[in-house]
Design a protein around this nucleic acid. Structure first.
Lengths: 234, 234
DNA sequence: CGGGAGATTGACTGATCTCAACCCGGGTGG
DNA sequence: CCACCCGGGTTGAGATCAGTCAATCTCCCG
């Protein structure tokens, strides 16, 4: 194997949680080695709805917000992508235009791998294909949960659930605050409600001692209470 | 190739819309040839939430309702499966327990293919893997749309949209009525609302001349109006 | 004919949205 | 240096969509 792999690329390839761990050295060699991940500043839109995408965006660092824009222009946040996550594979595989927009929330480094290469991997590397299929299926399961929650739970329940999910997905800083900075509006766009409702419910949760808030920083004090409010089964 | 293929199986294999069209004769031979599709009567539960599934259920005929049960026992209908559709691949691929229940709405014939065989196909037949990935990605895109709709649209808008979707997905009978029989409650469980709300809105649509109703049979009279009500973009 | 499931209707309630005012802190230009 | 502006964040009041409850009706079936 050639040894002029950049640190970033090496990281991503060797990481045991990466789908690329299944690639043979020959396959890895197909990914242009000279390619450094690209830097994306907070606020940058990586791709947007309706755009053609042909390739995988592999997030090395940072946080990306992936959302759909509803009829009246309101964002619905579908998920976040962070280190190790892949964006754009739905469009690449199905050859449809992007149905979501990806916007940088926290400065990011992203490697782009062209669609032709990935499709080739899928065709010729069964483990890679299986892994990708598993990622898609995982997202599908989560989407189904999401649908059921939004359709059946109250805003209060959903907000509690969103906070729990955020805690599971993101690390805590040294003061145990969630390491993700979201505006009230963004929280509302995850929950599927109005900004004002989020504000009122957050201060309610704070009153009740379930969480602590400092600006956009949120600390979970009583996870059990939130889980109970959210009527979560898992 | 052996020629004692049953009519049903043959149908399914050769159908150009089937993912199995990519299989080689050798691979096809792995599917037990003597296996006739199984008959499932209306009301039968094929699998339910929490159950382990290891294989693909390939629908040859009939209609299956696929839903999740919410916290309070209320069903949320995720999708329907009909001729040519596959059920259970999410659980098979991700090796997780089923997160949905599949119940027969209209008498069905279904072929079951064991997980080991399918996983083997995925690993060794790139086109099969790609096709499956495309199915998963298609569902994923639909799920994202669904999330956004439920989160942002009114019940009225969603009901109009559901009717349009039903019309696209199911054939019409000779009187142009939708060929799917759903209770008001089932419609409500698609829309994510209460049965009474569906009833009121349906009779409103009827008053306005957008649809015609005879019991559970629905005929779309003014599709454009419904599309407009639904604020549909596509 | 009695029973049960599903459909319908009306009345009431309340969770949530909308609108509008106001606050707060940071950045900027004069 | 300070007034102003602007993007969030908060709060209150009022409006309303949609859910719940309860009564009634209509079939259909055994």
């Amino acid at each position: 194997m050639r040894n002029n792999i950049t640190p970033f690329k090496k990281d991503f390839m060797i990481d045991s949680s990466s789908i690329f761990r299944h690639l043979t050295p020959e396959e890895m060699a197909q990914i242009p080695l000279e390619q450094e991940p690209e830097f994306y500043k907070r606020g940058t839109i990586i791709y947007s709805e309706g755009q053609r995408i042909n390739g995988f965006y592999c997030v090395q660092k940072g946080i990306i917000k992936i959302y759909k824009t509803g009829f009246d222009g309101k964002e619905q946040i579908i998920r976040f992508a962070k280190k190790g996550d892949i964006m754009g594979f739905r469009s690449t595989v199905s050859r449809e235009r992007a149905c979501t927009t990806a916007k940088v929330l926290e400065d990011a480094y992203i490697t782009f791998i062209h669609g032709d290469i990935v499709i080739d991997f899928i065709r010729h590397n069964g483990n890679f294909a299986l892994e990708l299929l598993q990622i898609a299926c995982k997202e599908l399961g989560e989407a189904n949960d999401y649908i059921t929650d939004i359709a059946q739970k109250t805003v209060r329940e959903r907000l509690a659930e969103v906070i729990i999910h955020l805690k599971k997905e993101f690390d805590l800083d040294n003061e145990k605050y969630l390491q993700i900075s979201l505006t009230r509006e963004e929280l509302a766009n995850m929950v599927g409600t109005a900004t004002e409702s989020v504000i009122r419910l957050l201060s309610e949760f704070k009153q009740d001692g379930f969480i602590e808030i400092h600006g956009r920083r949120i600390k979970v004090l009583d996870e059990k209470a939130l889980v109970k409010i959210a009527n979560m089964t898992d």
